[in-house]
Design a binder for these strands. Structure first.
Length: 586
DNA sequence: CAGTGAGCGAGCTTCCGCTTGACTT
């Protein structure tokens, strides 16, 4: 019989902690929340000042029964759930549902899963923070009121089984509005001029004109001017530049990088990461924190020293930028930094490798570059050509990790070392061409870029990004699709061997891969909600109510007052819309 | 007369966030 029952949220975490504590401690997990508002009805007694009606869902009955039994037999129950709003609420629900007494219950938190941190936490117990719990209840009840009052209106006015909510409806709105921007986008073309020069030393130098021409006539006129021109280096400038590594992974940045580098969907990435976590290979994968523990930084710097040498080390502490981050966990990193790779499924090996590299790189020195900018003037024109080159002087973190960018569109920029040149040196133009280029519409969202946008707006949480993306597709608001592009003609005018010639080439444009498109239903519902519930659909709605939740957590505001203030006008709108608005078709 | 179909009524759908594992495709 254990004297102590120690409860955490995750089974994998329980296993780790069990190893730190002696046999006087039984470590169990709640497997997340153990109680929730009743599912079949509103679950909030509005007449009774928003009293929540909680139940233990069927799939949690067994675990609650087991914990209850163990709690009865223990002298002390340690509530060691996560250190955030939801974690505090889980502790409170455990306290209530297990029928614990204040005397034998202790609430503890820690920000690192190490033996010393756990023991330190045990030395410093506290009581449940009811203000923080109330902030969670406010969050929970508000989401229920919004979701369960608006969804039935959609069943009546649009079609059955649809849904609306604080998070999903705004996610769909983003996609609908982006699609409309794209539909209204008028592509314009202009002529980009590039040149291939030869230096006196017969080396090749690519450069781009500092001006684009709006019309074919202007572009042709410019090339005609170049026909008789002499070219020379009018300015040569070198300046140092630096690149810094990115922060370690959070849920959202991991989803983005795995999407860009390997093409994984956000659900796929999470499934693979979950597996790595359960096997003790990485830290928790649902996090908004970029923080690394002291132990992790120590291990990382040891590895960097051993592999690359002292001067590649640069210890960095990253700050979380995203709104509403709760930072109950560390960044996503390997559990042991000296484990450079793993055996297993190819997908798991690749994701682990990515996480290892990103973490190591985050503690490495800046890359030092030297940027060279060459200005080339033509004797017959005011415009100048610019050639840029970049040389890596010191690799730093680039030795390990290279972040993939969203837009890899710079096809013909010359990166790397430029040939040796002097100011005033004459150049010969081997070829100058003006290519018609079209402006691009804003990009459609991918799953990962939608998650990034939601995170920037403070909407949704690491544990809900993947489910939200799946919900809006399941409801038929959004589809993820490939689209084939269309052929488009474009003009190319070239000056070569003293003569200017024009030709028409074709390119494929508008092809899309795994992008999110709104459906008709998605657009109808979005327009309906925007017209009738503009406050809920506002991109800043979540950020605003989060401020209110913070005030509740600080004990400045009563959560029921917030509900009263929100519900009165909200419910009036709901009644009005239910009664007066037209049935929508789509 | 038997089978069809119009018309009616009852019952269902739904939120966000925390955590896995069971289940299908």
């Amino acid at each position: 019989m254990s004297k102590n029952l120690f409860i955490v949220e995750s089974p994998a975490k329980a296993k780790t902690i069990e190893g730190f504590l002696g046999k006087d401690y039984k470590v169990k997990s709640s497997i997340g929340h153990i109680r929730d508002l009743v599912e079949k009805e509103m679950g909030v007694d509005i007449e009774n000042d928003f009293e929540p009606k909680y139940e233990i869902p069927a799939d949690k009955k067994a675990i609650v029964a087991e914990l209850k039994k163990l709690a009865r037999e223990a002298d002390t129950v340690w509530l060691a759930t996560d250190e955030d709003r939801e974690g505090e609420a889980i502790s409170w629900h455990l306290f209530e549902a297990l029928g614990l007494s204040a005397r034998k219950t202790k609430r503890i938190t820690y920000s690192e899963i190490t033996k010393s941190a756990i023991l330190r936490a045990i030395e410093n117990p506290r009581t449940i923070d009811k203000n923080l719990v109330d902030a969670q209840q406010a969050r929970r009840v508000l989401d229920r009121l919004v979701g369960y009052e608006i969804s039935p209106i959609l069943w009546k006015k649009v079609k059955p089984s649809l849904s609306a909510g604080r998070v999903q409806s705004v996610a769909v709105r983003l996609i609908v509005e982006r699609e409309r921007e794209i539909q209204h986008f008028k592509s314009t073309s202009s002529y980009k001029v590039t040149a291939v020069f030869h230096t006196e030393g017969k080396a090749v130098l690519k450069a781009e004109l500092n001006k684009k021409f709006a019309t074919r006539e202007e572009a042709t006129a410019f090339l005609e001017k170049c026909r008789t021109a002499g070219f020379s280096v009018s300015n040569l400038e070198t300046k140092p530049a630096r690149k810094s590594p990115s922060a370690p992974f959070t849920t959202s940045t991991l989803q983005q990088e795995a999407g860009r580098k390997f093409g994984y969907s956000v659900a796929q990435t999470m499934r693979i990461a979950q597996h790595l976590y359960e096997n003790g290979l990485i830290t928790y994968m649902r996090t908004d924190s970029v923080n690394l523990s002291g132990t992790a930084i120590g291990q990382a710097t040891d590895e960097i020293k051993r592999l690359y040498g002292e001067k590649f080390v640069h210890v960095r502490q990253y700050k979380t930028k995203s709104k509403g981050a709760q930072e109950a966990h560390e960044a996503i990193r390997p559990t042991y930094m000296n484990r450079h790779g793993i055996d297993g499924e190819p997908q798991e090996m690749r994701l682990y490798d990515l996480i290892w590299k990103r973490t190591i790189a985050s503690q490495m020195a800046d890359a030092e570059l030297e940027k060279t900018i060459v200005t080339i003037k033509a004797s017959t024109a005011d415009e100048v050509f610019i050639a840029t080159g970049e040389v890596i002087k010191f690799e730093g973190f680039l030795k390990v990790y290279f972040e993939t960018r969203e837009d890899e569109s710079d096809e013909d920029a010359q990166e790397g070392l430029l040939p040796p040149m002097k100011t005033g040196e004459g150049l010969t133009a081997a070829e100058i061409s003006a290519v018609e280029r079209f402006t691009h519409h804003p990009p459609r969202y991918t799953e990962a870029s939608l998650v990034k946008k939601l995170e920037e707006l403070g909407i949704g949480r690491p544990s809900t990004y993947a489910p939200t993306i799946s919900t809006i597709q399941k409801r038929g608001y959004v589809v993820k699709e490939d689209r084939t592009g269309v052929q488009r003609n474009f003009n190319v005018i070239t000056l070569r061997g003293g003569s200017v010639n024009a030709e028409v080439r074709t390119e494929n444009t508008g092809a899309e891969k795994a992008k999110l498109f709104p459906t008709d239903v998605g657009m109808v519902v979005t327009d309906f909600l925007l017209a009738n519930f503009p406050d809920i659909m506002d991109y800043h709605f979540t950020a605003k109510v989060e401020e209110d939740f913070d005030e509740i957590a600080e004990g400045k505001v009563d959560w029921r007052k917030l509900m009263r203030d929100f519900y009165k006008p909200f419910h009036k709108t709901v009644e009005n819309v239910a009664e007066h608005s037209e049935r929508q078709s789509g």
